[in-house]
């Protein structure tokens, strides 16, 4: 039978196909992506769906999940009228506004001023990325020490140089907010600086030279030529920082724990505190669904602007 089948098959085909090779070509791509796909499904997508599922239950720490009452969308309606959620959203937005505005302004300004290739630039660049490499926990520890009311160096120099009384930086709502903004600026301005300088140095020199010949002064060159040409880089850098504002929490967790009050509690940290301080796992999951929606919205924006895997021809 088998023999006959093979014969008819061979007859049907107009030309003999290199069968094994064809099969390998079809299966191979999936064999290559499958392991990674499996891990991402299990480690990223499954937790996201799990969070959605848990958000429908009133689950508290100490209770078995099977015993947790199903509450439908109650957690979500509660979230919408929860003053704490609105408060941390407001804190997150203010934090994002100040850090991103200052980091972008400083980073871009410095990149424009220091753009010219110069001997030893690579040494300085190495130094500038150091803050980015430091673990968030350690960043929190360092700045908690510097802002410490008793032994902190910041109080000392403010007193010695400007005669300012020692402040309890991390114990005062406004000062603590300032402190976490300041820390973020220290760590992330170099990121903007490095990205923008890479963009500026990749600009075709003819265009910039042409504008000089046309009589453009430095300011015109910056605002009419250079910045517009690296606009997409600026927007992507900004959106990447924006996503980090919604993802990050470790520095604040170490420096202030979100306090005093909720003055330094970003949305991510609020989820953490809700889940593990007030122990409302179900409700915390509902808030994480909100966080997912926000982050995915920003990701989509980035993707529509710059998708590195868009087509096969993009190279």
């Amino acid at each position: 039978m088998a023999h006959a089948d093979m014969d008819t098959q061979r007859l049907d085909l107009p030309e003999p196909m290199p069968q094994p090779r064809f099969q390998a070509g079809f299966i191979t791509p999936y064999a290559f992506i499958f392991p990674a796909l499996l891990v991402m499904l299990g480690g990223l997508l499954y937790p996201v769906f799990m969070a959605m599922y848990l958000s429908l239950y009133d689950w508290q720490i100490g209770l078995d999940l099977e015993d947790a009452p199903f509450v439908g969308l109650t957690n979500f309606s509660r979230m919408l009228t929860d003053p704490q959620v609105w408060e941390v959203l407001w804190v997150t937005m203010r934090f994002g506004f100040w850090t991103i505005t200052i980091e972008m302004t400083l980073g871009v300004a410095l990149a424009l001023l220091l753009e010219k290739p110069i001997r030893g630039a690579s040494v300085f660049r190495t130094i500038f990325i150091l803050p980015l490499m430091v673990s968030p926990v350690v960043v929190g520890l360092i700045w908690r020490y510097l802002f410490d009311a008793r032994v902190g160096w910041i109080n000392y120099y403010l007193g010695a140089w400007f005669g300012i009384e020692p402040q309890i930086w991390l114990g005062d709502a406004q000062l603590a907010f300032f402190a976490i903004v300041f820390t973020d600026i220290w760590q992330w301005t170099p990121f903007i600086f490095i990205i923008v300088i890479a963009g500026l140095q990749a600009l075709p020199s003819e265009v910039v030279e042409a504008s000089t010949i046309d009589g453009a002064n430095w300011w015109q060159q910056v605002f009419l030529v250079k910045l517009p040409m690296i606009k997409s880089i600026l927007v992507i850098a900004l959106l990447m920082r924006l996503i980090d504002v919604f993802r990050g929490m470790e520095v604040m967790l170490i420096m202030t724990g979100g306090g005093p009050g909720r003055s330094t509690e970003l949305l991510s940290l609020h989820i953490y505190n809700r889940a593990f301080e007030t122990q409302q796992l179900g409700y915390a999951s509902a808030i994480s669904v909100l966080l997912i929606v926000i982050v995915f919205a920003i990701s989509t924006l980035i993707l529509t602007m710059a998708n590195p895997m868009k087509s096969r021809s993009d190279v």
Binding site: V48, L54, I271, Y272, S285, V295
Partner: peptide
């Protein structure tokens, strides 16, 4: 792949704990 790149660790925290 690009979309899930940005999943916040805070979102993984509760499900991981539940697991």
């Amino acid at each position: 792949t690009l979309m899930v790149r940005m999943v916040p660790p805070a979102v993984l925290a509760v499900p991981a704990f539940a697991f």
